[in-house]
Amino acid sequence: MTPGRERGLTALLCAAGSGLALLAAGRTWATVHAGDSITPVAHQLSGRDLGGAPGACALAGLAALAALFATSGRVRAAIGALTAAFGAGVVYASTAAVRDSRVLDAAGERSTLVSLDAHPAIDVNLWWMVSVTGGVVLAVGGLLTLVRGARWPGMSSRYDRASGRRAPAPAAAKAAAATGDAGATGDAGEEAGADASALWKSLDRGEDPTARRSGRP
């Protein structure tokens, strides 16, 4: 696999991980049923209701993805380390968000009736696991960037190669122009030499060269 293709696949991993985490953040993670309160209630809590950390880490991972193409060398490796940290943050925050204490606190913030029930029922679905999966995928992409990112080409490398191929053109044009000027100078010199030789030969024969130029016989 070429370094450029490896970079592209790693970028897809990071984008997929961040996308999964952001998708899951808007879905319902838990439902709290308070049947023993004055009025029975059921509150559905999304990932954002339980905490904004998973979504924030996913957004940071997307920002790091843009820097993955714009940087190179050790800077790119540092971006990979940050991306892996963002992925780990998504995993930790998603796991912590579905703890019973956190779910009850979030439900209590939305309705005081939940706190009146001594034993509310908590139903947690699997959307938080989707967020965890996204964090793992994002972390893997960051680790790949950390380990192998220094070998990948930068975004401007192809433009540098193209400019390097076009650079000799002006020099070649100058050389061609210089050669043409030298040739023209040489031709002019040869013509001047021929005229001088013809003049001396006519003088040796006793001819008047001025008379021939003026048109006299």
Rank of each mutant, 00 (worst) to 15 (best):
A121G: 08
G193K: 14
S157K: 10
S156C: 03
G134H: 05
D187S: 12
R161K: 10
S131A: 15
D123N: 09
E190N: 05
A150W: 11
T185V: 07
A162S: 11
G180Y: 00
A173G: 04
P168K: 08
K174G: 01
A172M: 08
A196P: 02
W128M: 01
P168C: 07
S197I: 08
D181S: 11
H119L: 03
A169I: 14
S131G: 14
Y159G: 12
M129T: 08
V124W: 02
A178P: 01
Y159W: 15
A173F: 01
A198G: 04
I122W: 01
A121N: 04
R151N: 10
S197D: 15
G141H: 07
L126Q: 05
Y159V: 13
A188Y: 03
W127H: 12
G149P: 06
G180R: 13
A173N: 03
A184Y: 02
T133G: 10
A184H: 08
V140S: 02
R166W: 06
A192G: 13
A173H: 07
P170K: 10
G134W: 08
S131F: 06
V137R: 06
A162T: 10
R166Y: 08
P153C: 12
V132A: 11
V132K: 08
W152T: 10
G186H: 13
A178D: 15
V132L: 08
T133N: 01
W152N: 10
T145M: 14
G186F: 07
T179M: 04
S157C: 04
A182N: 05
A192Q: 14
G149M: 07
G154L: 10
V137T: 11
T179P: 00
L126E: 05
